[in-house]
Amino acid sequence: MVREDGKRNFVMREDGDEDSVYSGNMPRQAALKAARRLDPDDSESEAEDDSTEIRLREKGTDKVHIFEAWAWEQEAPDDKPDWMGEEITKGNVSKKGIEHIED
């Protein structure tokens, strides 16, 4: 279901449980937010080799968007704000497909 601001809500599915909610205009935007919560590797190349499957169900529908996701840590940019730490977590995703839930 689309909110007034155009964003949609997606729920992370793990072993039938749905607990974390991510929002975004598109499923990929929500998946990128979810990917940043994964345990990060030291570099992007290591992280991509160690990817994790994440499943996001769009609230109000039976669609489950499936992504391969990975995260890594890297140095923060030189022009970072004062509150930001020295290391930041980056994430990336690759869409595998969509499944429909049958209840």
Score class of each variant (00 low, 15 high):
residue 60 G to A: 07
residue 17 D to I: 09
residue 8 R to I: 04
residue 16 G to E: 00
residue 89 T to K: 10
residue 55 R to A: 05
residue 17 D to L: 06
residue 96 K to H: 05
residue 60 G to F: 05
residue 24 G to P: 01
residue 45 S to E: 10
residue 84 M to I: 09
residue 66 I to M: 11
residue 61 T to I: 04
residue 40 P to A: 14
residue 73 E to H: 04
residue 70 W to F: 09
residue 35 A to N: 01
residue 56 L to D: 00
residue 33 K to L: 03
residue 85 G to D: 12
residue 17 D to R: 12
residue 101 I to E: 13
residue 72 W to K: 07
residue 50 D to I: 07
residue 49 D to Q: 10
residue 50 D to V: 06
residue 60 G to K: 07
residue 67 F to D: 00
residue 89 T to Q: 05
residue 81 P to N: 05
residue 82 D to Y: 06
residue 25 N to A: 11
residue 24 G to H: 04
residue 31 A to R: 00
residue 55 R to G: 00
residue 20 S to I: 06
residue 13 R to K: 13
residue 73 E to P: 03
residue 76 A to E: 04
residue 48 E to K: 08
residue 53 E to L: 08
residue 36 R to C: 09
residue 70 W to T: 02
residue 54 I to K: 06
residue 15 D to T: 10
residue 60 G to E: 13
residue 91 G to C: 03
residue 51 S to M: 10
residue 5 D to Q: 01
residue 2 V to H: 07
residue 46 E to F: 05
residue 28 R to I: 04
residue 48 E to V: 03
residue 62 D to W: 14
residue 59 K to C: 10
residue 36 R to T: 08
residue 66 I to D: 04
residue 98 I to L: 08
residue 47 A to M: 00
residue 103 D to Y: 14
residue 96 K to L: 09
residue 17 D to N: 12
residue 84 M to E: 13
residue 3 R to G: 09
residue 34 A to T: 03
residue 10 F to S: 00
residue 42 D to P: 02
residue 102 E to Q: 12
residue 60 G to N: 10
residue 25 N to G: 12
residue 62 D to Q: 15
residue 52 T to V: 14
residue 52 T to I: 10
residue 87 E to G: 08
residue 5 D to W: 11
residue 45 S to V: 08
residue 79 D to Q: 07
residue 50 D to C: 11
residue 13 R to T: 13
residue 63 K to P: 11
residue 101 I to M: 03
residue 91 G to V: 01
residue 56 L to C: 02
residue 2 V to E: 15
residue 6 G to H: 05
residue 103 D to H: 15
residue 8 R to D: 04
residue 88 I to G: 10
residue 5 D to C: 06
residue 41 D to P: 05
residue 37 R to H: 05
residue 75 E to C: 10
residue 30 A to N: 01
residue 78 D to T: 05
residue 20 S to W: 04
residue 52 T to C: 08
residue 58 E to C: 02
residue 46 E to I: 11
residue 33 K to M: 09
residue 16 G to M: 05
residue 35 A to S: 00
residue 63 K to L: 15
residue 33 K to W: 01
residue 74 Q to W: 09
residue 18 E to W: 06
residue 61 T to W: 03
residue 73 E to A: 14
residue 43 S to M: 06
residue 37 R to C: 13
residue 74 Q to I: 09
residue 30 A to I: 02
residue 36 R to W: 02
residue 14 E to C: 09
residue 52 T to H: 14
residue 6 G to K: 02
residue 29 Q to A: 11
residue 43 S to K: 14
residue 38 L to K: 01
residue 91 G to E: 03
residue 91 G to W: 00
residue 41 D to E: 14
residue 102 E to M: 08
residue 51 S to P: 05
residue 30 A to G: 01
residue 40 P to K: 07
residue 26 M to E: 11
residue 101 I to C: 09
residue 93 V to R: 00
residue 61 T to S: 11
residue 42 D to I: 15
residue 30 A to F: 05
residue 18 E to L: 09
residue 21 V to Q: 00
residue 95 K to H: 08
residue 7 K to M: 12
residue 79 D to G: 09
residue 68 E to H: 08
residue 13 R to D: 08
residue 24 G to L: 07
residue 33 K to R: 13
residue 83 W to M: 09
residue 13 R to E: 15
residue 11 V to R: 12
residue 101 I to G: 11
residue 89 T to E: 12
